[in-house]
């Protein structure tokens, strides 16, 4: 085991090369609906239990199924209204289970990235070949269903191995949403030397944390998202920032939460001169082509200064 993840060097949030997003925008804004399938009776992983109660643990299972039957359709319609395309964190088995949802998203030109096969199949304990098989399956499954080559990853249920980040680079992924150390994208160190970007995703503004960890109401969540945006906008004048809203339709898509969330999309997309309403793959593409090399130099300089 390693003392630190060894995927990036310390790089303080000051005096970094200035990022200017396309069109002179200050904040790159993306929305990440997690479209997930949870199995009622998954095989056991030695390091993490899927459900707290013995099989069949119907309450948490059906609680999540609500998103695919009800919440997704509400959220998608609302995002349409504000011209926001989703970057979907996808349990790729959804392509088999509910192709109706995949087709509706593909028709809207939403981006898909891999969130594993099922959100009940954890990566803990996998060997290199097994984890590679998850990535191969993900790439092939989404390509077959939508024609899109996925370039992003968020590990299923945030379960990783020491190989995860290196495997992403080896498989020509462009970005990972797995690391939460920053509000700006940045290069990650990879064994292969291939470029890989750490994409800001944020657990703190994830609807799961807001509602079920911190116990916030729909109104409190809407207010905190607006404050999150205000700060990132202010800082974005100095150097472009990224704001992601990670969502789950089974949470945000409930009847009592859609109204307050609508105000958030209205507020953020209303800042037309300052906000780049985009997808994760577009942010990664722009960053790789316009910011990556400068960032690398700045990080190297910071390391030299420190030593």
């Amino acid at each position: 085991m390693k003392y630190d993840p060894e995927h990036y060097d310390y790089w303080p949030y000051q005096n970094r090369p200035k990022i200017v997003w396309p069109g002179g925008k200050k904040v790159a804004f993306w929305v990440a609906p997690n479209i997930e399938f949870y199995e009622l009776n998954p095989p056991a992983n030695p390091q993490r239990k899927s459900w707290p109660r013995p099989y069949p643990d119907i309450t948490p299972y059906s609680y999540r199924d609500h998103g695919n039957r009800v919440g997704h359709w509400r959220l998608m319609e609302m995002m349409d209204e504000f011209g926001v395309r989703g970057s979907i964190s996808l349990s790729v088995a959804m392509c088999q289970h509910h192709p109706e949802i995949i087709e509706a998203c593909a028709a809207r030109k939403w981006e898909f990235f891999s969130h594993g096969i099922y959100n009940t199949r954890y990566i803990y304990g996998m060997d290199h070949a097994q984890e590679q098989a998850i990535l191969t399956d993900s790439i092939k499954t989404v390509e077959t269903a939508t024609g899109q080559r996925i370039r992003g990853y968020l590990a299923p249920a945030l379960t990783h191995t020491e190989h995860t980040i290196d495997l992403l680079a080896e498989n020509d992924f462009w970005y990972s949403c797995d690391l939460f150390q920053d509000d700006q994208p940045q290069p990650l160190k990879t064994k292969s030397g291939k470029k890989l970007v750490s994409m800001p995703y944020s657990l703190e503004v994830n609807d799961h944390y807001a509602f079920n960890v911190y116990g916030q109401s729909a109104r409190q969540y809407a207010d905190l998202l607006k404050r999150q945006f205000d700060t990132l906008l202010e800082e974005g004048a100095e150097s472009g920032t990224v704001m992601c809203i990670p969502l789950h339709a089974y949470l945000i898509g409930r009847a009592h939460r859609m109204g307050p969330f609508r105000e958030v999309l209205d507020y953020i997309t209303g800042h037309k001169d300052d906000v780049w309403v985009t997808t994760a793959i577009e942010i990664a593409d722009y960053y790789l082509n316009n910011c990556y090399d400068d960032a690398l130099k700045s990080i190297e300089a910071a390391q030299r200064e420190a030593s």
Partner: peptide, 29 residues
């Protein structure tokens, strides 16, 4: 570490639910 081979097999990976209690359905349709 290695997980058992079954951990990467997906016997219910097909259209609809992973059980037979009800078919999938979109509320709005």
């Amino acid at each position: 570490m290695t997980l058992p081979e079954d951990y990467l097999k997906y016997p219910h990976r097909s259209h609809g639910m992973d059980h037979d209690l009800y078919p999938w359905s979109n509320l709005f349709n």
